[in-house]
Design a protein around this nucleic acid. Structure first.
Lengths: 346, 346
DNA sequence: TTGTATGCGTTATCAG
DNA sequence: CTGATAACGCATACAA
């Protein structure tokens, strides 16, 4: 456990002042190039590592970004985090990650921890029952930037990074309609959350435009768990007239349904065509492959982190840009394809 | 952007010394209970938050744990992280998380960042091509504890937290043998990694014990990706005598195989019985359900974090315990069940 | 039980 | 281009 090397030690060895060493290490413009290389070499040789705490204490920033997500153990979220980590790492920011487990209470506690950790900025995707941003007021007051991604609430002082969920819901539904579906059931999550409310809106719009009936019987708000998927299939079996199309706001739940539907004697897509959401890896594994909305997780994470860092560096004014909309894409696979185009065969 | 409150401000208002305030805030035994509550209330009232950097600078610890994992975007890893986050949070430790993307080079860089961030301890799961722990020598030298989990290399100065992969591989194979399989193909990952090497060893042992043949033709080392799964099915189709059992060291790859096998006209489990590894959510979604080795991710994360924290608090001597073995469990589902027990029917 | 004084390692300001 | 010096906010040894 040898003693920690400081800039004083380097200064002494080089017969320079600590100030010069500090400046050299930080590539200060007003320092002789020779001195810089001299210092750099000596630092390396002596095994110097800068003390972030002293530095952070002196400057007033932490080079740390706080991230609060609903759940860590979701395929989509891991992709997002992966993107954030990549960008943060490149700009030598650290990430402090915590999960709200879909509970506002926990989210509030997390926010407090982040505040006490003096994060330079915050990246948040809201819990399913969060309905205001009051717990981030301490941040707003201090001018600490907050970026919401995916699950957001629009508010003037923070960037939102989302896809156009309404359009995506619309696209998914139109696709089913184009496959000849007349009776489309939509399964969604908590309608407090923009992502689900917007998808539902898009679904309704598509039905409306095509003169199809919707209504309560065809709109199910659930938690999108595996069990919800199984329950749904039972519900379908109980219906007088079962649906011929299924738009489910989560791939995992959709995949569960496909398996359960098949086991119940329905044929997918012939009896019931299915579209999911997220392009989770599972959509490629099941048979038939799941048609879904591709949703750029990695990219969303990268953009969120990059925007925050840009803002922290004064390269982007938060007030200027307010919502960043990422493109989504309908990925058509077997679960919805009724109209098989024979023309592509040799 | 109001001024930050310090212990000096509290001290002034209360006509106490900063030292007393500091001690009161830290629940120092030698402080009057009344003073403590007085200080606590005032701190609350003034909106005081402690400056971790000043504190960390003064003490010699950071209340921060570094985590390096191969990939963030894996179902298993998110579970582990979720467990770590839970425990760390409870003991008010922060987590700094980074990914090696399965590359030693990146892992070395990550280790350096962690070192510079002066983490109090390190939780690491190794990249697939890491074959020594030299890049952690800086930590060992400084006495910073390192705990390896899941993908480990045994070394005297650090705890390993693993499951008994050899036993698990053995169990999986024995199960297939019990289902009547005579020709079992094993698909594994990089043999540099304990997890895969050990599972292979268990597989071989089981074969040996039952006088079954193995050999190169029945051992495939891949990256366990989706594509590897598809390639495997092609390989199987090309075999003179295809296997009647498949033990694949990853559920996701196994699920892909099942789907592809069915599409190629094989019946699972009748023609080929399949066992995976990890109990990934996907194993419940596919049809038939995937028999697999359940692997306590959340628990592994919790135990790893807790052990580290205990060690940091002097409650656990690293040198005493060297390997913590978690239990695994064979979860039997449809993909391997040939011997249907009729007796359970009504 | 409380107060005084000091230093943790940096960086920013000011002066040369 | 470089140096001296003063904070940054806290925790502790020592004193009372």
């Amino acid at each position: 456990m040898q003693k920690e090397i400081t800039i004083y030690d380097i200064a002494k060895q080089l017969e320079l002042s600590p100030a010069t060493v500090s400046r050299a290490l930080n590539d200060h413009p007003a320092i002789n190039q020779n001195t810089k290389t001299l210092v750099a070499n000596k630092a390396m040789e002596m095994g110097y590592r800068s003390n972030m705490f002293a530095s952070n204490l002196r400057r007033q920033r932490t080079k740390t970004i706080g991230v609060i997500v609903p759940r860590l153990d979701s395929a989509f979220m891991s992709t997002v985090l992966s993107g954030m980590e990549k960008v943060a790492n490149e700009s030598s920011y650290n990430l402090i990650i915590s999960q709200s487990l879909e509970s506002v209470t926990k989210e509030i506690a997390n926010a407090k921890t982040m505040f006490d950790s003096r994060v330079d900025g915050l990246l948040v995707s809201l819990a399913s029952d969060t309905d205001n941003l009051d717990h981030f007021n301490t941040f707003f007051r201090k001018g600490i930037p907050l970026i919401l991604f995916d699950r957001v609430i629009a508010q003037k002082n923070c960037i939102n990074i989302v896809i156009d969920n309404q359009k995506a819901g619309y696209d998914a539904t139109i696709h089913l309609i184009n496959q000849g579906c007349k009776r489309i059931l939509h399964v969604t999550g908590s309608l407090k959350r923009n992502v689900y409310a917007d998808r539902l809106r898009g679904y309704k719009l598509a039905l409306l435009e095509h003169g199809l009936t919707g209504g309560a019987e065809l709109e199910r708000s659930t938690n999108l768990t595996r069990q919800d998927g199984l329950d749904l299939v039972n519900y379908i079996k109980s219906m007088a007239i079962p649906p011929d199309g299924l738009f489910i706001a989560s791939d995992f739940c959709a995949a569960t349904c496909i398996t359960a539907l098949k086991q119940s004697g329905f044929s997918v897509p012939t009896d019931i065509a299915v579209v999911g959401f997220n392009d989770d890896p599972v959509s490629l594994v099941i048979d038939p492959g799941l048609t879904t909305i591709h949703y750029p997780g990695q990219e969303m994470g990268e953009i969120a982190a990059q925007s925050l860092i840009n803002h922290l560096n004064g390269l982007l004014r938060l007030s200027t840009t307010n919502t960043i909309l990422l493109n989504h894409e309908l990925v058509v696979r077997g679960s919805s394809q009724r109209v098989v185009s024979q023309s592509t065969l040799p």
